[in-house]
């Protein structure tokens, strides 16, 4: 564990003038070099948290630090340590891609490095767009420029706020390759996304926010293991006309030819289920299992699992 945390959030509160409490005493730490997911439904407080780190929102109480620098008391150093890729496709239409990159470096007190610009542009597939005005780029290209802008001052911590929202599959793949590369280069990455499979495959740890409160913070693996259910799906040549109560309570739904059952990890076994079905006269054609994913855990934690 590193001596200084990449991000340290301590009893952070934010209540907007409207009375909305967006953050309610949130505390957690992101260590240097982590690939960290920040998840939550809409309105959970994710954007408020990120905007507080970036200096776009002033906390009502508590504090947040980036690389040991308070975002309130030592805000210049905190901002220099942080690169934020905003969720919205915001851009300045007057300038070319290369100009906006040079401007962003300049705001941070740095002389524009053409070599660094070229490297980032190349990685993001923007080399042939460097002299194009921002207003002339497609949405996907603008998204890539936002990432490049966030990296111009070479921040050790990069926050990606829903970077793949609304982008096509090809660009999504490119963005994740790039995020992995940044992580491998030593950057701490904080990711918010609605595509939970992305967080599951990329992130070491996951924090879930709901209604401004931290619901959980665990490694991705332990979070998945904490979900006690797994689904068994079967294709049956014949389905029993009537199921006993013990089987009925495990039955979830039928989708096409497949029947889905949900078993508790500790209380039920697949063998018992198969045996019970056999006794009811069911003939098995095919079987498959589905392990819990982050979406299941997420829905369970935020209390919106309809199943």
């Amino acid at each position: 564990m590193s001596a200084t945390a990449a991000i340290e959030i301590n009893a952070l509160e934010k209540t907007y003038a409207s009375g909305l409490k967006a953050l309610d005493r949130v505390s957690f730490t992101v260590e240097q070099g982590e690939f960290f997911a920040l998840l939550g439904p809409n309105g959970a407080g994710k954007s408020t948290l990120i905007n507080t780190l970036a200096g776009l929102v002033r906390p009502s109480a508590g504090d947040a630090k980036v690389y040991g620098h308070s975002v309130q008391r030592d805000w210049r150093a905190a901002r220099r340590a942080l690169g934020v890729v905003p969720q919205e496709l915001v851009f300045d239409p007057f300038f070319t891609v290369r100009e906006v990159l040079a401007l962003q470096a300049g705001y941070f007190g740095l002389k524009a490095s053409r070599a660094w610009q070229d490297e980032v542009l190349e990685e993001l597939g923007l080399s042939d767009k460097s002299e194009t005005r921002m207003r002339g780029l497609s949405g996907g290209m603008k998204r890539r420029v936002l990432i490049a802008q966030a990296l111009m001052h070479k921040p050790p911590v990069v926050v990606l706020d829903e970077p793949t929202a609304g982008v096509d599959v090809e660009l999504r793949q490119l963005l994740w390759r790039f995020a992995k590369r940044l992580h491998n280069d030593g950057h701490t990455i904080v990711l918010t996304t609605h595509y939970l499979e992305e967080a599951e495959s990329l992130c070491d740890r996951v924090a879930i926010l709901d209604k401004g409160q931290l619901k959980t913070l665990q490694t991705t693996e332990s979070l998945l293991n904490s979900h006690p259910w797994r689904d068994i799906e079967m294709q049956l040549l014949s389905f029993p006309s009537q199921l006993p109560a013990s089987l009925q309570k495990l039955y979830v739904e039928q989708a096409g030819e497949w029947h889905r059952w949900r078993l508790h990890r500790d209380e039920h076994s697949v063998a018992d289920l198969l045996e019970a079905l056999k006794q009811q006269g069911a003939e098995l054609k095919d079987i498959r299992t589905r392990e819990p994913n982050l979406e299941d855990v997420f829905l369970q934690l935020v209390g919106r699992d309809d199943s």
């Binding site: 776009l56 805000w75 901002r79 942080l82 934020v84 915001v90 300045d92 239409p93 401007l103 802008q149």
Partner: peptide, 17 residues
């Protein structure tokens, strides 16, 4: 314009007083 199109973000997240 920067407020309306959101590009003010780039200035506000920078270490500019």
């Amino acid at each position: 314009q920067a407020k309306m199109n959101g590009s003010i973000t780039f200035m506000l997240i920078a270490p500019l007083s």
